[in-house]
Design a protein around this nucleic acid. Sequence first.
DNA 1: TTCTTAGTGTCGTTAAGTAG
DNA 2: CTACTTAACGACACTAAGAA
Length: 605
Amino acid sequence: MRYSVFEHSLPLATSEAPLAEVAAIFDASIARYNVLATISTYRGAKGLVMNFIASDPRFAGKIIRVGHEFDQYFLVHLKNHMDFQPYSSSYRATVLSAVRGVLSYAVVNSFYGYRGFLDVVLDPTFRETAMRSSFSDNEFQQFDKALDDEIAFVESNLMAGYVPSGKGVPPEFIGTRFAPGWSDDEDNLKWWFENKLGCKAFVHSKTMSNAQKKFYFAAKKHGGIRVLFLRWGVILGIDAFVIIPFMFKLVTWTGLNATPAQSLKTNDYIKSHPLTGKPCIYYWKQRGQGDTDLHEGLLTAHLEKVSAETKDVMPLEEKQSSNIEKIWIRVLDITRPIRSELTESEEDYLFIYMPTYGRAAGQVRNLLQPNKCMHDWCRYMVEKYDLRDDRGDLLEINISRLRPSLVSKLMSAGVDISVIQAILGHSDVITTMRYIDKHNFAPKARREIHKCLSNIRKNREDQVRQPKQIAVGKTNDPSIIFTTATALCLDVYNPPARVKKATGWIEGQACTNFNMCLRCSKVVILEEHLPRLLAMRRGYKFSLENGAGATTHRAVLIQNLSVLDGILGENSDFSHSVLSKANQQSRNLEVYVDPFLVRGKYEQV
DNA sequence: TTCTTAGTGTCGTTAAGTAG
DNA sequence: CTACTTAACGACACTAAGAA
């Protein structure tokens, strides 16, 4: 039996349409999906399969019947074919996965009696282009400076504006026409523009007012309205290139993905979140099926589900929010004139513009995809500012590179992974870690650990050589010695800036951020601390091995564990006998795993 | 007619999530 | 975790259509 229960809706391949059956199983499979991105992925796979069949001698001149010519080895053939094409590893995996999905669906529904297929194992995927990779520090600085320059340029154009001149004289009329000669004087046109058109620019359209029409025709002898407006400093419109730099600037501060940035609404910036009192941004997000967006864990307090819709919340740190606020207010200012043109049914997007030319001239637009302006603007920027990558080639700019660049910046600023996680809007810190791994930030983490260890060693040597009063600080009471769970503190009233910025630090009070000790420059670790540190290490290992750390604080555990390994491991500064004695003592200690994440705050580098 | 700029479809790549 | 699926995003060629 070759046909399925769907028989009535499935066409048969004929000599006129030899691929009809293949197309049909794809179409039926595609119909399962309703997310546009997925549908287009499957359509792409369909196209590729069609081309493959059309070009492969195996199928030449045949009618392709599913289950016969299109047999159980099809996926294997396709993979072999793709292996010889210059496709990226990711694309291979994507296409093969989609085709596998189609075949499985055909099997499940027994389309054309298709019974089964030989599956293939996908190859590992690699990053093969710079498309969405982080800028290097140098590249980022270059771009950021160009961005600032461009914003200044846009601002100066906007600010120049039109200054009413008071020149010219009112026209005489003959009937409804201007008296001959009046419009030859450009100043007279200025008079009309200032007194009859309210100094407002316009573009040619069918809906021009009579006053505008008169001006339009009179302007022709002076080169046309565009030329006049340009010469007079009249802003024709808030076009895409005026508004895009502000969006890019916002993304350098937020790391938003393209679509969420493009779909920000005017009221998505909240100065004081109802729960936390902290500034935040509400942003649209499709991933995570909407109702699973809510972050769990320690950051829950910052985050609130906005509605049943797909919106997420990005908590903002001080510096970040003040920069964002500036951009936000400026964009609202700039777009105010065109915002009033929005009809009630149109969405109140933050980033809107009004093209001054072409098909959409005079209409309010937003930057949601598909929109080519962004791409055009990137090219314009690279050329205008001659931006170069580290190899000296023209820099590849797109908005998606700013996200990993922000992460890179945060990493080198020593911002904790949990904060990065919140900023990126990942529901699981594992995703953040994977992100960081993929982007090759690991060396930075290693440098961090190395720094911690050499600091610890230096402090210990100093302390052993010349013991200091510990924790005198502002109390002036030398009898107070601060011992955290794991170490001594050199100056509990004056920790490094990074610790001061962390949650829980109150000026004038002793530092209680014990969880940051291992990475603090004031830490002193002596022989007496070893048992507790050994217990701590045991706890971390246990936690990691048993999966407890797999979903929550894994990154912090791993990083602290690396530091602990440095202190207690094979290359320890402590002698073998000291360590083994400490090990004995540690058996009686409770396993200690710090339940809190190390908190940092965002700093600009 | 030519110039501009927006809009569309297709191809290709990578990120982000899930199942087991 | 690995292996895989699904979503997101960019480049680009080409088309549309009004303005000059």
